[in-house]
Design a protein around this nucleic acid. Structure first.
Lengths: 407, 407
DNA sequence: CCGTTTTGTTCAGCGTCGGCACAAAGTCAG
DNA sequence: CTGACTTTGTGCCGACGCTGAACAAAACGG
C-alpha cells in the first residue's frame, strides 16, 4: 500500500508566510530588514521576496525614495502591491452596515456604507452587505481572496452562530457565518480559481483588536487587551502573540459581567454593578442626567455630550464616575491577563481622551505590582477598526500560507 | 563579508521535539500513533524514534505487552527510557520544602522532603533545597539536564524575582531565580557537558497547572484553567495550547482580587470580598466557627475539618458558602478566559470532592451561554503537582529541541 | 580614483522529509 | 496448515528549502 499522511505543514517555502506578515504589518520595509526579522540569510530573504512579488502580493522598488544618511548600498523598498488582491470586509452595527474591499497592509480600497432600510432580519441584512461588497468588486475588478464579517455579538466556535446579537434585535444563535457564506455564494463572489471564497465571522471588538494590533495603536504589543463600548454593553478582546484569543468556544473576553460597583445597578445576569451596565453609553448619559433620544446612536449622543459640555460639572462628574468604574474593571482584567498594552475603543476611548491621567491612575492603583501597574493605556487609532479587523481575519489564511491559498 | 544570521529555528530534525513531547505526555504509545500524530510518513517517524532512542531518551520494546485484538502487524511500544536523564525539581511552601529528581513522563525518580529548620531566609532555604537535590543526584548518579523551582509567589519576568512571597515571610522582590541558579552552581549540579545546568523558577500554581495539563486531570485540554488555594490567598494559572500563559511580565492569573462578595471582608488590596479572603482555608475555618491553631497548616486543618465533620450543619454551611463564592469567581474567570476545562487544587479541590454538583451548578448559572456554561470542573489528580510542574518547566528546553540541549 | 560598507544574486551542498518498494509480523478464512 | 489480507517497519532516492561563500552592485569618503 502507498503511504498516506495527514499533512500538518504544507510544503512550499515555509518562510513565505512570516515574510508576508512582516511586510503586511510594515515591519519589513526593505529586504535587509526582512532578512534580519526572519533570521535567515540574504539569499533566502531575496528568494522569498521574489516569490511574493511573483505572486503579485508585494512590490519591490529598486529606487527608494529616501536616500538616507547611512553608508553602504541603499536597500530596495518592499511594499504591498497597490493593485494586488483584496478581501471583502463587512460590518453590521446597530445603525447600519458597511462593506469594503481591503488590501494587504490594511489599506481600504473601496467602501460602501448602508443604512438599515431592509428588514431587521439576519439573512436580509447579511445579503445586503454582501451584495454591497460584491458591487464594489464588480466596479473595481479586483481579485478577491476571502471575506470577513464583524457583528456586535459573541460568535460561537466552531458553529459560527451569534450568541447575543442584542443591539440588532436578532434571535440568539443566528447562524451568521453560514448566512454569510451563503450570501457570498449567492452574490457570485469568487476567488481567482472561480470557486466561492471562504467567509469568516467574528465579534466586532475582537476583530477591532486584531486590526489595532496589526496596524494601529496596538502595534508591537506582545499581549494586547482591548476594551470598547459602542452602544449597549462592553466588549473585550485579547491578542496573544499576534493571534486573537477567542477561547475554546469563541466566548473569551466576555468582560461585561465583571463587578465594578457592588452597590450598583442590577444587571440581567443576576448580579449588580456589572461593567456592562455601569460603563456603557447609556450609563454615562444617565449619570449626566440626560434622557437618551431616539434619533442618533447612544455612542454619538455620549460623544457629543462629552466633547461639547465637558466643562459642565455634571457632565464632568459623570465622566469621572464612569472612568472610575472602568478603571476598576480594567485593573481586574490586567491582573488576570497581564497584557503589555491596553487599547480602548468607542466611548471608553473618548473618556480616555478627555482625561487620560485619571483612568491611568485608577488602573495603576488597583492593579498589582511593578510593570503591570504602569501598563500603557492608549486610544484606538484606526478608522473602522472592526471593518479592517474583519479583513485581517479574512487575510489570515493567506498570511499563514500564501502558496496554499494562491498557487 | 561572510553572511551572519540570527538563528530563529535551530537546524536539526525539526520533528524531534514534537515527537519527544508526544511520548512524554503518553500520546504516542507506538510508532504507528506517532506517525499519525506528527503527520509525517512512517519512514520519518521511524527515523525520529531511532534518533530519540540513540539519545537515550526513549526506549523501543519490539515485543509489546498487549497483543491487542486488531489485525495487522503489531506495533512496537515506545516508552520513556527508565534510566534516562532527569531534571532537578524543587518546591518551597509554607511548611517546608521538597526536592526531587523527575524523569521524562513526569516520573518521580527520587524525592527528599525537608522541614523549615533553617532560617526563613530565601538564600538559606534555596541553598538547602538545592543541596537536597544535589544529594539525590549523587546517590542515584543520574544525568541532570535542568532544574526547576516552585515558590508560592508570583515570579516576575524577565527578572525572576518573587513579588509576593507572603507565606514565606520573604521580602517582596527576592531574586529567587538568581539565588536558585547560584545555589545550583555552588552545589556542583552540572549537565552532561560539565557546565552548570540552567535553572528556572515559577509560581507554584502555574507549575501545578502545567503538570496537570501534561500528566494529570488536564490532559488533552486545549485551554486549561487551574485555581488552587493552599494556605492564604488563591492562585490561578492558565495553560493555552500546551504553553503556560504567564502574561507579558509573569503576573497573569493573579485572580485573588476578583470580587466575589461585595459586602464581604476587607482585603489589603483596598477592596472588599476578594476571592483571596473569601475562599482560602482561613475563610473556611472562620466561617465554620473554628479558631485556627498554630500546629499544622491551615490547609491541613481545613481538610481535616471537611473530611471528618462534613455532617455537622455548621461545617456543611461553611463549605457551601465558600463554594458559592468560589463559583462566582470561577464563573467570572470562565467568562473572560473561556477554557474547556477547569482543574482545582488545594482546599478548592477538597470542596469540589465534597459536593461536586453545587460548585458546577453555581458556575453554570453565572457563566454565559452554551458550552462554556457546562465547562468540566475536575479535581487535580497528581501528587506533588507543583513539584512535577517545576520539572516540566525544566524539561521544556529539551522538549523544544532535544538536539540543542543534548548533542 | 580607489577602499569601505552594505545590499543583492548566483551556485553548490547539505539536511530533512516525502514517496515508493519491500520485508516483517500478525489476523482471518478455508 | 496455508494463503490472502492488513498493518507496521525500513532502505533508498529524489525534491526542495535553506545555508554558506563568492561575486557583483550601489552608495559614501578620502
Amino acid at each position: 500500500m502507498t503511504q498516506t499522511r495527514t499533512p500538518r505543514l504544507e510544503r512550499g517555502r515555509s518562510a513565505l508566510g512570516p515574510a508576508l506578515a512582516l511586510v503586511h504589518t510594515g515591519r519589513a520595509p526593505t529586504r535587509a530588514v526582512l532578512t534580519a526579522e526572519l533570521g535567515v540569510t540574504r539569499a533566502t530573504a531575496g528568494a522569498v521576496a521574489a516569490e511574493l512579488e511573483a505572486l503579485g502580493l508585494i512590490q519591490v522598488d529598486a529606487r527608494p525614495a529616501a536616500p538616507a544618511g547611512s553608508q553602504g548600498r541603499p536597500s530596495h523598498r518592499l511594499a504591498i502591491a497597490p493593485d494586488g488582491p483584496v478581501v471583502l470586509a463587512a460590518q453590521i452595527h446597530a445603525d447600519g452596515f458597511r462593506a469594503a474591499l481591503v488590501g494587504l497592509g490594511g489599506r481600504m480600497v473601496a467602501t460602501a456604507p448602508g443604512c438599515m432600510t431592509v428588514p431587521a432580519d439576519p439573512a436580509h441584512i447579511i445579503d445586503a452587505v454582501v451584495e454591497a461588497g460584491a458591487g464594489l468588486l464588480r466596479e473595481t475588478g479586483r481579485r478577491c481572496l476571502g471575506a470577513g464579517l464583524a457583528v456586535p455579538s459573541a460568535v460561537a466556535e466552531p458553529d459560527g452562530t451569534a450568541l447575543n446579537p442584542l443591539h440588532l434585535s436578532w434571535p440568539a444563535g443566528a447562524p451568521v457565518r453560514a448566512l454569510f457564506v451563503e450570501a457570498l455564494a449567492k452574490s457570485g463572489v469568487h476567488g481567482p480559481d472561480g470557486s466561492p471564497v471562504s467567509g469568516v465571522a467574528g465579534n466586532d471588538v475582537n476583530l477591532a483588536a486584531l486590526a489595532e494590533h496589526r496596524h494601529g495603536a496596538g502595534r508591537g504589543a506582545q499581549h494586547l487587551l482591548c476594551v470598547a463600548t459602542g452602544h449597549r454593553g462592553v466588549g473585550g478582546a485579547l491578542v496573544l502573540d499576534g493571534r486573537l484569543h477567542t477561547g475554546s468556544s469563541g466566548l473569551a473576553l466576555e468582560v461585561g459581567h465583571l463587578t465594578v460597583n457592588p452597590a450598583g445597578l442590577p444587571c440581567h445576569c443576576g448580579s449588580r454593578g456589572c461593567l456592562d451596565v455601569e460603563t456603557d453609553p447609556l450609563a454615562f448619559l444617565t449619570a449626566a442626567g440626560r434622557e437618551p433620544g431616539p434619533e442618533v446612536s447612544l455612542l454619538q449622543q455620549s460623544r457629543d455630550l462629552l466633547r461639547s459640555e465637558y466643562a459642565d460639572p455634571t457632565v464632568r462628574a459623570a465622566a469621572d464616575l464612569i472612568v472610575d468604574r472602568l478603571g476598576l474593571g480594567l485593573a481586574g482584567l490586567v491582573n488576570i491577563l497581564n497584557p503589555d498594552r491596553v487599547v480602548l475603543g468607542g466611548l471608553h476611548r473618548e473618556l480616555l481622551d478627555a482625561d487620560p491621567e485619571r483612568l491611568r491612575a485608577v488602573v495603576a492603583d488597583r492593579s498589582l505590582w511593578g510593570r503591570s501597574g504602569s501598563v500603557p493605556i492608549l486610544a484606538a487609532s484606526l478608522d473602522h477598526n472592526s471593518l479592517v479587523g474583519a479583513a485581517e481575519a479574512a487575510w489570515q489564511p493567506v498570511l499563514d500560507d500564501p502558496l496554499a491559498t494562491l498557487g
